[in-house]
């Protein structure tokens, strides 16, 4: 068995207490379900001195829904709790689709939504053992060397890997961030940077406590994912779409967000706008899908060849939009 290095373990029972621990201990990693972090610790890509586990904070484990306030999911809710929540099943079926497409049943029983939104970026050249990385020469993401996937670039190109984030961004989700100084609510889209090494803009002292999604009956949303195997695998491409239609089926609002390509979700605003004001036709969908496919530039760093992933983005956009439009 691979043995983990020692660390100090903290398990606060309130957010207040958690914030205090966080601000007084350096090199602290927040532990939620651990399905990503513990693997990183085994591979020695992450070696925290302190672990702050949020599992004993009850306020982070609530799911609430009202038509007015929308949906609020505590960061420590597991993916399978979300999968089995009747309100989400009823009002946000696309979230259920996205959740079900994640990893394996056992991982969904332990992994949390907070952890999924803060999932580390992935790369062939990074998600490896210490031996492996040293054999190749370490990389930008680990802290030195070059980006093996794109040596010509001076930044890390590791891939954004949350399957939920693109959809939730498309659904205009907000996240609540707590630090000892403040409590902030920001759009989920603003949480991410296109930098594989530092793609989540949380300060060391900040905790993501919940995600909230507005409810609007008019909204149609869908999630699409392509992966190599029908379980366990990360996405070759994924997409989250939200469309709003008028009573005459004219598209009034369009959000399309692409994951698994860059280091942050790609919000294809300008291209998506082309759907607005239209009674969306298959031809239009094809046009938008092709344009998005041209617009994305994957690096050779995860499952699937670069051109294949590019193509699959277009295809997923096409399929996801088509399903939405057909079901109007």
């Amino acid at each position: 068995m691979i043995r983990l290095r020692k660390f100090e373990f903290h398990s606060p029972t309130s957010l207040q207490e958690a914030k205090k621990i966080l601000s007084s201990n350096g090199q602290t990693k927040i532990l939620a379900g651990g399905t990503d972090l513990v693997v990183g610790m085994k591979q020695e890509t992450v070696q925290p001195k302190n672990i702050l586990w949020l599992g004993k904070i009850h306020e982070l484990q609530q799911i609430t829904f009202s038509r007015k306030e929308g949906l609020k999911i505590g960061a420590m809710c597991t993916l399978s709790e979300i999968e089995h929540n009747t309100n989400i099943q009823k009002h946000f079926p696309s979230i259920i689709d996205a959740v079900k497409s994640i990893a394996s049943p056992q991982i969904r029983n332990h992994a949390t939504i907070g952890g999924n939104l803060c999932l580390n970026t992935r790369c062939f050249y990074y998600d490896q053992s210490d031996f492996w990385r040293n054999s190749l020469g370490n990389c930008l993401k680990y802290g030195n060397g070059i980006c093996h996937a794109a040596p010509e670039l001076s930044r890390c190109t590791a891939v954004f890997s949350s399957d939920l984030a693109p959809l939730l961004i498309a659904l205009d989700a907000n996240v609540e961030l707590h630090s000892s100084q403040s409590t902030l609510k920001i759009p989920l889209s603003r949480l991410y940077n296109d930098d594989g090494k530092n793609h989540v803009s949380l300060f060391q002292s900040e905790i993501l406590s919940s995600v909230s999604i507005p409810f609007n009956e008019k909204i149609k949303s869908a999630h699409g994912k392509i992966r190599a195997r029908n379980s366990t695998d990360f996405a070759i491409a994924n997409v989250g779409v939200e469309l709003t239609f008028s009573s005459k089926n004219i598209c009034e609002k369009a959000n399309i967000v692409i994951g698994a390509i860059s280091s942050s979700p790609i919000i294809v605003d300008t291209i998506a706008q082309k759907l607005i004001g239209e009674n969306v036709s298959e031809k239009k969908i094809e046009e938008v899908a092709n344009e998005i496919s041209t617009h994305v530039h994957p690096m050779p760093n995860v499952d699937g060849a670069v051109n294949y992933r590019k193509k699959m983005v277009g295809l997923l956009v096409k399929r996801t939009l088509s399903t939405l439009v057909t079901n109007l």
């Binding site: 068995m1 651990g34 399905t35 693997v39 599992g55 049943p105 056992q106 029983n109």
Partner: peptide, 18 residues
């Protein structure tokens, strides 16, 4: 895989302390 509170989870990536 073992069951923790009735649910299958992966014991190789779960810290016992949690």
């Amino acid at each position: 895989t073992v069951l923790v509170d009735g649910k299958p989870i992966l014991s190789c990536i779960t810290l016992a302390i949690t």
